[in-house]
Structure formats: C-alpha cells, structure tokens
Amino acid sequence: MTALENATNTADGVVLNGFVLSPVVEQCTGCDRVREFGEEQFCSSYPVPSKKWVGGRCNFATHLKAQTGSGAKVNPLKASKRAAKGR
C-alpha cells in the first residue's frame, strides 16, 4: 500500500485525510518519502514540503546525511557524569 492510495483529486488539489497536499520542491528530489499521485509528486510525511525547507534543511529528508561534529569540544568528565545520571 502506498502512502497516497487514499488520496483524492479535488478542486482545491490533492486531498489526503483532510489535508490539501502541495507538490514537492526541487530539494526533495531523491528523498524516499516522495510518492507519485497522478503526474505529480508529493511528500508522504508532510503536506507542504516547501515550508520544511525554509529553515535550511527538511528534518524528514532521507537523502541528506546528518552533519556530525559541530566542532564544539565536550568535557569528558561532564559527559561521564551526564551519562551516569541518564541524561
């Protein structure tokens, strides 16, 4: 079963579970969450994909690697105390 199997095409656009879906933007190309409905592509996780890219990166994007190592040094003593407390 695809994520957009229950979607319907209305005058407002493609509707799924009461949400009007917007087509994906260029940055979504290659993401595993992109599904086709008719001749357009839509995100299976978020109805308005363009808003997810406003802050720089979509948190649902499966085709982008997470950036690791911000360059901030971690104090090993504090890290071990936090781990012991369960934080």
Score class of each variant (00 low, 15 high):
S45L: 14
S50M: 00
S45N: 05
V14F: 05
A83K: 15
A61Q: 05
Q27G: 09
F60L: 13
V25S: 14
K85D: 04
N6T: 03
A7Y: 12
E26H: 01
K65N: 08
G38S: 09
R35D: 02
G69P: 01
S45Y: 15
G55D: 09
A79E: 13
C31S: 14
T68R: 15
T8L: 07
T8H: 10
A3D: 04
W53M: 13
G71H: 09
Y46S: 01
Q27V: 13
T29P: 00
K85Q: 11
P49E: 07
M1F: 14
A66T: 15
V14P: 00
Q67G: 01
A72T: 09
G71W: 07
V25H: 01
S22N: 10
C43P: 00
L21M: 11
Y46T: 13
W53H: 12
A11Y: 06
E40C: 02
K52N: 07
V48Y: 07
F37D: 01
L64G: 06
N59Y: 03
E26F: 07
E26D: 00
E5M: 04
W53Q: 01
F60P: 00
K85I: 05
G55T: 11
E5F: 11
L64I: 14
V20I: 10
N17E: 05
D32G: 15
Q41I: 04
E36R: 13
S70I: 11
N59M: 01
S70P: 04
W53F: 14
E39G: 03
A7L: 08
P47N: 14
Q67C: 04
V34K: 03
S80P: 01
D32Q: 08
Q67H: 11
S22Q: 15
K85C: 03
N75T: 05
S22F: 08
E40A: 15
S44A: 15
L64C: 05
A83Y: 12
V25C: 04
V15R: 01
C31G: 03
G86N: 08
V20E: 08
G56M: 05
G86R: 06
C28K: 00
T10D: 13
T2W: 08
S50L: 01
V54A: 13
V14N: 01
D32W: 03
T62S: 15
K78H: 07
G56N: 09
G18C: 06
F37N: 08
P23V: 06
L21F: 11
T8I: 13
K51S: 09
D12Y: 04
E5N: 02
T29Q: 02
T62A: 09
P23Y: 08
N6Q: 06
G30H: 00
V15H: 01
H63E: 02
P49I: 03
E36G: 09
S45F: 09
G56Q: 06
A84P: 01
R82L: 14
P47E: 08
A72Y: 14
G69Y: 10
L4D: 03
L16D: 06
K85R: 12
G30C: 00
V14Q: 03
